[in-house]
Design a protein around this nucleic acid. Structure first.
Lengths: 199, 199
DNA sequence: TGTACATCAGTGAACGCGCGTTCACTGATGTAC
DNA sequence: TGTACATCAGTGAACGCGCGTTCACTGATGTAC
């Protein structure tokens, strides 16, 4: 009795590391960073607490690794999209589509970034900051007289507000999912809020 | 030596209670609930940690008392305003004004409610919920064909997004204060986003 | 007005708990010869 | 193919710290007589 069952133990720590990434993201997104303990994550992954420290130096490092990975992905998508759109209307359509897809495919990623942006953004270079990129898009639109709001930061806040708040409502159950079903209405609302001039 | 200086000690605990209210609100708004310790609050108030328990049963109770007080105030203002506006355009103007004034006069209250709404809203009766009230306003506007967006929850999310996001930008320094300077632009943007029909 | 007493805001020290983290150890796996 | 060894993911127990909270006590204030 009391025989320890032989455990299959892969030497590929990568698999465990990815599972920590996934489970920690899920817990942080649902309960928040502080309310999630190392024990919670370890239990979800199926290992002892101490095992996490074979893959990450600290609890903070788990959160910042997750944030940096997903936020950089998002920033790259937004930058790429901004560079390849010949006018604001096209960029707007693609941005709203991107947001809806991110939310519907990965609500955990959306919630995690939304909740933790202010704790981590100071470690992100300004040119990789999504909000800064949106402001830059607005600047170009204003320079080309494509929209009537004339302050880029204000325009960015109005656009982000219209785009993000429906997602927040979905997250808390005030709007039915998927967010994608409202894509056209959101796009129209952003365009109207900014005073997009019809081509 | 070691003489304890005679302390002026008022028997009016009300003054201390109000100071706890004010300082805790400030700390919770700036650092968040978890990152604020009982010691932090006591130091800001100028008393020992244990003194806080003469006025509140627990740390949680401090936060929920603050939330309930300020949130109820806000809910009452919104309800009153909704009842006394004969059409949607008037209600909208007053709502945006209310939000700008709340933010500019009491940024701590704004930030605290914004950050803590989801932890406390389950203790608020639904008819006192500000978001529910906004949805109701949208329902009436839709019934009267005052706006073209036809789903009340979606309309509420678009309106709240346009109104709140500029405040968030102010809070984090992306937009200059006061928020009130953008009042007209915010109002116009909300109206446009909802498809308000000109009277 | 003076005295005895009840009240209560505030204190300093202590408590217990949960947390993130460390550490010596295990044992399976991969590898060199 | 067999053997000795290095590697390393994972473990269970322990540690120390900071936190929220409790408690016996203090002393000023208000009040009854």
């Amino acid at each position: 009795m009391n025989a320890v069952p032989a455990r299959k133990r892969s030497r590929d720590g990568q698999a465990t590391r990815e599972k920590i990434f996934k489970e920690a993201l899920h817990l942080f997104a649902r309960k928040g960073f502080d309310a999630t303990s190392i024990k919670d994550i370890a239990t979800a992954v199926g290992v002892a607490d101490a095992a996490l420290y074979r893959h990450f130096a600290s609890k903070d490092e788990i959160a910042s690794a997750i944030f940096t990975f997903h936020y950089s992905n998002l920033a790259r998508s937004v930058t790429a999209l901004a560079e390849h759109s010949e006018n604001f209307g096209v960029a707007l359509r693609q941005l709203v589509t991107l947001l809806c897809e991110l939310f519907d495919d990965s609500p955990d990623v959306f919630a995690f970034i939304l909740l933790n942006q202010h704790d981590h953004l100071r470690f992100i270079r300004d040119e990789d900051n999504v909000v800064s990129e949106i402001v830059a898009i607005m600047q170009r639109a204003i320079a080309r007289k494509e929209i009537s709001i004339d302050k880029p930061e204000l325009a960015a806040s109005l656009a982000l507000g219209v785009a993000i708040q429906p997602a927040v409502f979905c997250l808390y159950g005030r709007l039915q999912r998927p967010l994608g079903q409202y894509r056209d209405e959101i796009e129209t609302a952003v365009a109207a809020a900014l005073g997009l001039r019809v081509k």
